[in-house]
Design a binder for these strands. Structure first.
Lengths: 204, 204
DNA sequence: GCAGGATCTGACCGATCGGTCAAGTACCGT
DNA sequence: ACGGTACTTGACCGATCGGTCAGATCCTGC
């Protein structure tokens, strides 16, 4: 039978390898991960890894490309649209969805986006972040820039750091007690409060 | 003359090497940095690096230990003291000072604290973060935990990400137009607004 | 049954890794 | 002048790195 759309997503070998690679890259870093580790972790040989993916870089590219592309369209739409409160609210929701839906890739890109700047797909991601920062910062005071920076970076890193520091106790407890929906709601609320003040405070 | 307290801090070879190492670790990652790179960057040979520091790990330890120790005392004082608004305000100020005063070490620890968890000094730092999270999260709602998480992570990562993504244009522009004092003030303001609401909203 | 592509693997390659070692140099108090 | 100490370095080591290649094995269409 050809590619069954309803099949469980983790049957194909290349997907297993990709997921193992992404997990290792996000956990111990791209430079700190060897092809041997990826192979071992996925239950294949190093040669098999290089059969499915031309190189270590290709593995990284395949792993984070979907997340980067989602980020690019999100940023592009936000940057060209007018910055009304409604547009901001929609952006916040979709941004949080991206964070939650691509955790591994986001973690990887966020914590290593600078050191991996030579890799084309990462460069594209960095450029997207820069566009977002421009759209956010243009004409804003330093305090406003700080507010946006803390909001976006905070939302991103709160999740990343959660997976980073609290794999064991607190975070697993927090993440198991609360569903993804609850986390999403709480996160959206905090960002909304930061970026779309309900009281009389001017936004810029 | 013995160690002159008023001498410029960058005369000794071990300091040059340590600074070069810290810079490389923070920029391209601990695993991604070779002793040869550190030596080249500082203008010494690889053997000289290993003469002044017993190993690559020792270099890391020496580099981030001061920042970790400052973090430990800060967290300890905050955790054992009562969480009054005044105590929170004092904590915020000292926390931002730590961020600004130990940029390289903070960047390194924040973005690689998980992957380097085997190294004793990093483990201590992670433990301190965990204590801080406990002190902050105990008894708080998920929304409140998110608020604290976004605030601390956001403040930390806003600076780190600044140095990470915007070495070139925006950040250097932003960082050169504004002094450290201005940045500090803006950051403290945002955190204060997030953690010590002036309006009637309950803190927990 | 058999040809042929897809998949998987061990052997192997040059380069680089972190680290050791002994020799060399420069400066010190005596 | 001398012995010792602090410092620097190139040569060298075993291990591991990312990557190549030539088979094995398996599955499928004919």
């Amino acid at each position: 039978m050809p590619t069954d759309a309803t099949a469980p997503p983790r049957a194909r070998a290349s997907d297993e390898l990709l997921h193992a690679a992404l997990e290792q890259f996000a956990t111990v870093g791209f430079a700190g991960t060897s092809l041997q580790q990826i192979a071992d972790h996925a239950g294949y040989s190093k040669s098999s890894v290089l059969y499915h993916y031309a190189s270590k870089e290709a593995l990284l590219e395949a792993g984070i490309a979907p997340a980067i592309e989602r980020l690019e369209v999100l940023v592009a739409e936000f940057a060209e649209g007018r910055r009304s409160d409604a547009a901001r609210g929609a952006f916040i929701g979709r941004f949080v969805d991206l964070l939650l839906g691509e955790r591994l890739a986001v973690h990887l890109f966020v914590s290593q986006g600078h050191s991996l700047g030579d890799i084309p797909i990462v460069k594209r991601g960095n450029a997207a972040i820069r566009v977002l920062a421009d759209a956010i910062c243009s004409g804003a005071s330093l305090a406003e820039q700080m507010r946006f920076g803390v909001a976006l970076a905070g939302a991103t890193y709160a999740l990343v750091a959660g997976a980073t520091f609290f794999d064991d106790d607190e975070m697993s407890e927090l993440m198991n007690t609360h569903s993804d929906d609850e986390v999403r709601t709480a996160l959206v609320d905090v960002l909304t409060e930061l970026l779309i003040p309900a009281d009389g405070r001017p936004t810029r």
